[in-house]
Amino acid sequence: MTSMYVILAVILFAIGLAGFLIRRNALVVFMCVELMLNAANLLFVAFSSHYGILDGQMAAFFVMVVAAAEVVIGLSIIVMIFRSRRSTSVDEVTELKG
């Protein structure tokens, strides 16, 4: 039974990673990262129930708190970029090269 959840988590993670690499809007890219974090959460909970312990479920709470902090920082950076460029496409931020 656990293996089903593991497979689902891996699929979710792969979707997130693919979206991270393919999508061009900074907001959507960021959402894909959140999807990756939640895939890890699912894995934590699945393994936790496999072993009959609570550690993994506790870990999921830690991850949620950290993800919330990350959203605060990330959105403010994206808003800052949007205000100075009127765009959130990651293709247009290309002044740093080499």
């Binding site: 988590a9 990756m36 974090l37 890890a40 894995l43 934590f44 699945a46 393994f47 993994g56 991850v63």
Partner: peptide
């Protein structure tokens, strides 16, 4: 996120 996914596997 990649690090965390790895942590989840090691936990498992």
């Amino acid at each position: 996120a990649i690090l965390l996914f790895g942590v989840a596997f090691l936990f498992g």
